Structure formats: structure tokens, C-alpha cells
Amino acid sequence: MLGLDVKKVDQDIIIKYQLSKIVIPIADIVSVSLDDTYGGKEADAIRIGTPYGTTDRVAIQTKTQNYILFTTNYTQIMNTIHSAMEVR
């Protein structure tokens, strides 16, 4: 795995990037949206991926933490998370 990998496993969203693995409970996700700023709007967000000028930014807001995913495949990531949220 070279890039960012986002999957639904049981009741969690698992984000893997390089040697990192982040587990976000689906029940904790408040919103998922695109962030059009270069470094992300939330100063305290956990940033995952490499922020190139051509990458898209997916912002995940949870009850306790915010995440910004830098990706070139935002459609797949958004679809994975939104479909997981619909099932809960």
C-alpha cells in the first residue's frame, strides 16, 4: 500500500497511510466534506497524506477530533464514509 487507504471494518472507518493506522468509530462521525483550503481550515486537525497543490482535501469532523485527508481519490473516500454512515 503506497497511498491513502480508507475502509469500513465492522463499526469503524480504518484509515491507513504509510505506517499509520487510524480507527474512527462510525458513530462518532459528525460530518464529512471537501475542504478547499491548502492546509485545511481546522488548525488542530490531524492531517493524513501529503498536501500537494493538486490533491483534494477530505475533512472528517468527529465528536472529539477533526481529520483532514489529502488524497487524489476523494470520490472513493467520500463514498466509503457516506455509505458507512447511512448503515448506522
Results as ranks from 00 to 15, higher is better:
88 R>Q: 14
37 T>M: 00
63 K>G: 04
7 K>Y: 05
10 D>K: 12
4 L>G: 04
75 T>C: 13
56 D>S: 15
7 K>F: 04
45 A>E: 05
76 Q>G: 15
13 I>T: 09
22 I>S: 05
15 I>E: 01
57 R>F: 04
54 T>Q: 13
7 K>T: 07
18 Q>D: 15
59 A>M: 13
66 N>A: 15
49 G>W: 05
33 S>Y: 04
36 D>E: 13
47 R>A: 00
37 T>F: 00
11 Q>H: 10
42 E>L: 04
58 V>L: 08
47 R>P: 02
72 T>Y: 12
44 D>K: 13
49 G>A: 05
1 M>Y: 00
35 D>Y: 08
60 I>D: 06
39 G>S: 11
21 K>H: 03
17 Y>S: 02
86 E>S: 06
12 D>N: 14
70 F>K: 06
27 A>L: 11
10 D>Q: 11
60 I>T: 06
9 V>L: 12
74 Y>Q: 15
25 P>Q: 01
2 L>E: 02
19 L>P: 00
30 V>T: 10
33 S>H: 09
80 T>Y: 00
47 R>L: 03
70 F>W: 04
77 I>V: 14
24 I>R: 03
79 N>S: 10
2 L>F: 02
16 K>P: 00
39 G>C: 07
56 D>Y: 13
48 I>G: 01
26 I>K: 01
79 N>R: 11
51 P>W: 05
28 D>A: 05
72 T>N: 14
60 I>S: 07
41 K>F: 08
75 T>K: 14
80 T>V: 07
79 N>K: 13
